[in-house]
Design a protein around this nucleic acid. Structure first.
Length: 899
RNA sequence: GGGAGCAUAGCUCAGUUGGUUCAGAGCAUCUGCCUUACAAGCAGAGGGUCCGCGGUUCGAGCCCGUGUGCUCCCACCA
């Protein structure tokens, strides 16, 4: 056994340990080892499952810092669960991301191969797309592995895998049969670059500087005024528009019926400029009298409001744009010109003809396609839709009833609720090739049937229309990516394609979904809907929203700004553990995270700290002896204290983890290791130079270190596993070591530890302030009623303060420094001359503070209402504070007078 | 236009049932140390009107109102 372990050489006794930790070797070694041991694998068994499905990254490129944060959080949760007795299953995968990927592939083909998509057949194009997917999918997977993610690779799922494809089609057909999917003409947002419909959620609105053009429309049948062309008179009306290129699609102009200025236009017609088309003047309350000129042109084909008014007044629709954003035949002029070019030319022509009254700078909101970043065009088109209202109801209930918990806080509940209550039908057809092709078959007359396969379609068609041998043609369009991703938590376990199988029954509902808050509508809400529809059960119990990763100036990370670091480079420079540490330590759940490489450096330093603690223990191991000497007493104290401190922190971390407060948990562990373990505990048990450590103490220290490594492991898996094995020869691995029971911490011993720490700090501080070098030997004169309580700790005290003598209740003969610890006075005697002025200064400052403090406490205690209303323990605490302050004041005053 | 959130040290942020030994952490700054695990380190220190104003309370960083300044989400104003 362990053949492969020999090759990787855990710890060679003769091997010199390097000065610093070198991550690269350890990371590669351990990831391979864990894989070989099948630790990442999960199969249903008797244990309780803990399941996470990865939000599948788009195969458009490589992972960015947002993914890094997400995957790290998931790995922490999954490793913690695995070490806590759960059957942990983390399913990896990727998303075909139809529009985004197709755009990338089209672009790549043009740039690298000079191929135009239009010259390819559907099959040829898909071949290229799958090649692309293979390449980038694998890059993504290798990044996930480099980061240390313990995903079950055997379950890797792609949203276009065969079974997944079938599941999507099956759901489409099912929803169609239920009447929840329909085909209809609607005003949708059109992406002229990708030449496809967009769902409302795929449109991003941005404020941009635009222009408002004031265009004159002649009133039909009136005399043209010769005089002032800028005057709004009976001959013209003036209409403000941002999009003069759409005037050819005008079918009416509209004013508010209460607007006195336009009352005389009742029943009149106006002439659309340039094309001289006569259109009626209509009246509707919708028009705002105070905006622009108070009169609006109606262009039903290119504006959602106009479309609605058009419906109301039964106006025709004149679509003047082609699908690629150029002007269509219907525009009559500038046919074939791009919409923005046409705009410029039309403005020029209007200006030439004196029909442009003025241009105004104007801030407006324009909708941009999230995928191609071009201005989306409102357009009438026939698309497929999902009726959302009925699906939304159960999904809404899951969250409002608390069955699904959103973390970090409730602030997303309101947004979620609002969206679901006002949900609009979902446009799911996309005019693309990369995706699941819509399973609808048409005959030549446009009649269609919906079925999972072509044969089935024919059968249904023949039955329905009582014919035979009719050529049917499948819908060219594919489905929105989210129409496949919304099945993710089910279909990764084949829950749709093979319902009721062992895996879906065991793993569903999953435990936690970790994702960005920006896709709460796209994805989170819809997964809940799909889960309720097809499993009658929520897809996950907890949702953990991570914030957005920004650069340290608070800017969004983007390629154009060049502020998005390369994950593999970061791992190369700092190590995966340090990257994980850096991104977690500064990331309270849900808050945006300002990414700064200095936190990665902190992680790297932490690696080194752990490494050196291990080296120290290895050094001790060599010469550890069994002995029964004086010092054992203080070592017992140190061990007792740290054991309790460990238990205290372990239960605190347990609570933090259960509340998903991961960065706080990490901070707590960090401080426990660095401060309590390294700075205090190891120093306390450190043998004098040249001496050996007690065997039992050594073993205890190692077992504490084991516990610390285990606590830290979910956050920093590689170095903890590495050190775990370097510390001792082991048969087991830390990754799968199960957490033990947490004992209660004894608060008394913790307080004694604090007292010792305070005494050491106070003495060091006093030495420092009085220019006594740390190395210089001192004598301590402790004034106390409980000299015996110093027995277990006095050795530590003298070691840590460099005191070679400790006297109790004696007063030093010569001048010395005085400091107060708790209620006790300590004199520090050294050979360095004491500057009494410095002493006096410090004491007087303390005295002043204490007196002020005493006054506030006394005031409170003499307040009847406080004594009557406050809780007894609060009052008791105040009394104690008062007594303590008085004792201290007394001590200081005595000393001051003796100086 | 509608809704939500944030404002605490120079910077990034903790502070979850309101109790002045809770005003904290990490960076950064300053002082002293190359002390045999660690200079990627050790020992210390300084630094804040808890955004302004008002209220509730014996007591407010915390609760309520309001003003200011940021941020995000939703929405069809030409």
């Amino acid at each position: 056994m362990f053949v492969h372990l020999q090759a990787i050489n855990f710890f060679d006794k003769n091997m010199e340990l390097s000065k610093n930790y070198i991550p690269a070797d350890a990371e590669e070694k351990w990831y391979q080892h864990w894989m070989k041991k099948n630790y990442f694998k999960s199969e249903p068994d008797d244990r309780t499952p803990f399941t996470i499905v990865i939000p599948p990254p788009n195969v458009t490129g490589v992972l960015h810092m947002g993914h890094t944060l997400n995957e790290t959080v998931q790995d922490i949760l999954i490793r913690k669960a695995r070490m806590s007795g759960f059957n942990a299953c983390w399913v990896p995968g990727s998303d075909h991301a139809s529009i985004a990927t197709e755009a990338k592939v089209v672009d790549m083909l043009k740039r690298e191969k000079g191929i135009d998509k239009n010259n390819l057949s559907r099959e040829e194009f898909l071949k290229y797309a799958f090649e692309w997917k293979e390449k980038y999918g694998n890059i993504i997977y290798s990044q996930i592995a480099k980061l240390g993610c313990s995903v079950d690779w055997d379950r890797t799922t792609f949203t276009m895998d065969d079974h997944y494809y079938k599941a999507v089609i099956k759901v489409f057909v099912d929803l169609y049969k239920k009447g929840l999917i329909y085909r209809g003409a609607r005003m949708i947002n059109w992406d002229p670059a990708a030449q496809t419909a967009l769902s409302d959620e795929e449109v991003e609105y941005k404020d941009v500087m635009g222009k408002l053009y004031y265009v004159k429309y002649a009133v039909s049948g009136r005399q043209k005024a010769e005089s002032n062309p800028e005057k709004i008179d009976d001959d013209y009306i003036v209409i403000a528009t941002q999009r003069p290129e759409t005037i050819m699609g005008d079918v009416a102009v509209c004013a508010n019926p209460n607007d006195e200025r336009y009352k005389n236009l009742q029943g009149k017609k106006v002439i659309v400029p340039l094309i001289n088309k006569e259109v009626p003047v209509i009246f509707d309350e919708y028009v705002d009298k105070d905006f622009g000129t108070g009169i609006l042109k109606i262009t039903p084909a290119h504006d959602i409001n106009d479309f609605n008014i058009g419906l109301k007044f039964n106006l025709p629709v004149v679509d003047t744009l082609n699908e690629d954003g150029t002007l269509s035949e219907a525009a009559q002029i500038f046919v074939g010109e791009d919409r923005f070019v046409a705009r410029k030319k039309i403005v020029d022509e209007l200006r030439e003809k004196g029909l442009l009254l003025k241009e105004e700078e104007y801030v407006t909101r324009l909708g941009y396609s999230q995928r191609t970043n071009v201005v989306a065009e409102p357009k009438i088109s026939t698309q497929w839709f999902v009726k959302m209202k009925d699906l939304a109801q159960p999904a809404l209930k899951q969250v409002t009833s608390g069955k699904i918990q959103i973390h970090p806080n409730e602030k997303f509940n309101a947004t979620y609720k609002y969206w679901l209550e006002n949900v609009k039908d979902w446009c799911i057809s996309r005019q693309l090739w990369w995706g699941q092709q819509i399973p609808a078959w048409y005959d030549e007359e446009g009649r269609f049937v919906v079925a999972e396969t072509e044969n089935e379609a024919k059968e249904i068609y023949n039955k329905q229309y009582a014919t035979n041998n009719v050529q049917l043609k499948q819908d060219e369009d594919v489905l929105d990516t989210w129409f496949s991703s919304w099945l993710w938590p089910m279909e990764v376990f084949y829950g749709i394609s093979n319902p009721g199988n062992k895996d879906i029954n065991y793993y569903y509902p999953t435990s936690v979904l970790v994702t960005g808050q920006d896709i709460i509508f796209f994805w989170v809400a819809r997964m809940i809907m799909a889960g309720m529809e097809y499993m009658h059960e929520k897809p996950f119990t907890d949702v953990y929203f991570t914030g957005m990763v920004r650069d340290k100036m608070g800017r969004k990370m983007s390629k154009s700004l060049g502020n998005s670091p390369d994950l593999l480079l970061l791992i190369h420079e700092y190590g995966a553990d340090a990257v994980r540490f850096g991104i977690m330590i500064s990331s309270p759940a849900g808050n945006d995270l300002l990414f700064d490489e200095s936190s990665l450096e902190q992680g790297k330093f932490f690696n080194n700290k752990l490494w050196n603690a291990m080296k120290l223990l290895k050094m001790w191991e060599e010469g550890a002896i069994t002995r029964d000497q004086l010092s054992v007493r203080s070592e017992e104290f140190a061990i007792n204290w740290f054991e309790n401190r460990l238990n205290e922190v372990r239960s605190a971390v347990e609570i933090l983890m259960s509340q998903f407060r991961l960065s706080e948990a990490l901070k707590t562990i960090y401080s426990l290791i660095w401060d309590d373990f390294c700075s205090w505990f190891l120093e306390w048990i450190k043998p004098e130079y040249g001496k050996s450590i007690d065997q039992k103490t050594y073993e205890k220290a190692v077992s504490f270190f084991d516990d610390l490594l285990q606590m830290l492991h979910p956050f920093m898996p590689f170095i903890t596993e590495e050190i775990y094995h370097l510390l001792k020869d082991r048969k087991d691995d830390l990754m799968v070591k199960q957490f033990g029971r947490i004992e209660n911490a004894n608060s008394e011993i913790l307080m004694e530890g604090n007292k010792l720490k305070n005494a050491i700090s106070a003495i060091r501080d006093a030495k420092n302030k009085n220019n006594v070098k740390p190395k210089e030997k001192i004598s301590l004169f402790i004034q106390t009623n409980e000299a015996s309580s110093y027995e277990p700790i006095k050795e530590i005290l003298s070691k840590q303060t460099n005191a070679d003598h400790i006297f109790f209740n004696q007063v030093p003969a010569s001048s010395s420094i005085m400091t107060v610890v708790g209620n006790e006075k300590i004199y520090i005697k050294s050979d360095t001359a004491i500057d009494t002025a410095v002493q006096r200064d410090k004491l007087e400052k303390d005295l002043q503070y204490l007196k002020g403090f005493l006054i506030t406490v006394e005031k409170k205690l003499s307040n009847d209402r406080f004594v009557q209303n406050a809780k007894p323990e609060v009052i008791e605490l105040e009394r104690k504070k008062k007594a303590d302050a008085e004792t201290k004041i007394n001590l200081i005053e005595q000393t001051l007078s003796s100086l």
